[in-house]
Computed example of a mutant assay.
Amino acid sequence: MSDLLSTKQAAERIGKSPEAIRWHVKEGNLTPTVKMPGESGAYLFHPADVDALRQRLQARQKYRPRHARPEALADGKGAA
């Protein structure tokens, strides 16, 4: 199990917060390899699963349209 990643390590690996990792687990986007015993048991993740999530997130970001920043619209200068 030493090659498995904790929630914190998984978050660092993809540049997100531990809360984001837990959200992805809840939404079914990332499946923990191990859930430790107990109601609030820690998750452990296989590195390949975390890397696959990172790739999906990067692909989604690549095709997400950019929107004007709200502050740019408020001052009448348009999209920055």
Rank of each mutant, 00 (worst) to 15 (best):
S2F: 08
S2L: 12
S2K: 12
D3W: 13
L4K: 02
L4V: 09
L5N: 05
T7H: 01
K8C: 03
K8W: 04
Q9R: 02
Q9Y: 02
Q9T: 00
A10C: 01
E12G: 15
R13Q: 15
I14R: 00
I14D: 00
G15R: 02
K16M: 10
K16Y: 06
S17K: 07
S17C: 04
S17N: 03
S17W: 05
S17I: 08
S17A: 11
P18C: 05
P18R: 04
E19A: 14
R22N: 14
R22M: 12
R22C: 12
R22S: 13
R22K: 15
V25T: 06
E27D: 10
E27R: 10
E27N: 05
G28D: 10
G28S: 11
N29S: 07
N29R: 14
T31Y: 03
T33C: 08
K35G: 08
K35Q: 14
K35F: 04
M36W: 12
M36C: 11
G38M: 04
G38T: 04
E39L: 07
E39R: 11
G41W: 05
A42K: 02
Y43T: 02
L44H: 07
L44T: 07
F45L: 07
H46A: 15
A48P: 01
A48F: 04
V50Q: 07
V50L: 01
V50I: 01
D51N: 10
D51L: 02
A52T: 09
L53G: 08
R54C: 03
Q55A: 14
R56N: 13
L57M: 15
L57F: 09
Q58N: 10
Q58C: 01
R60K: 15
Q61L: 12
Q61R: 14
K62Y: 02
K62N: 06
Y63H: 04
R64A: 03
P65K: 04
P65H: 03
H67E: 10
H67F: 05
R69Q: 09
R69C: 09
E71W: 14
L73W: 02
G76Y: 00
K77S: 15
A79F: 10
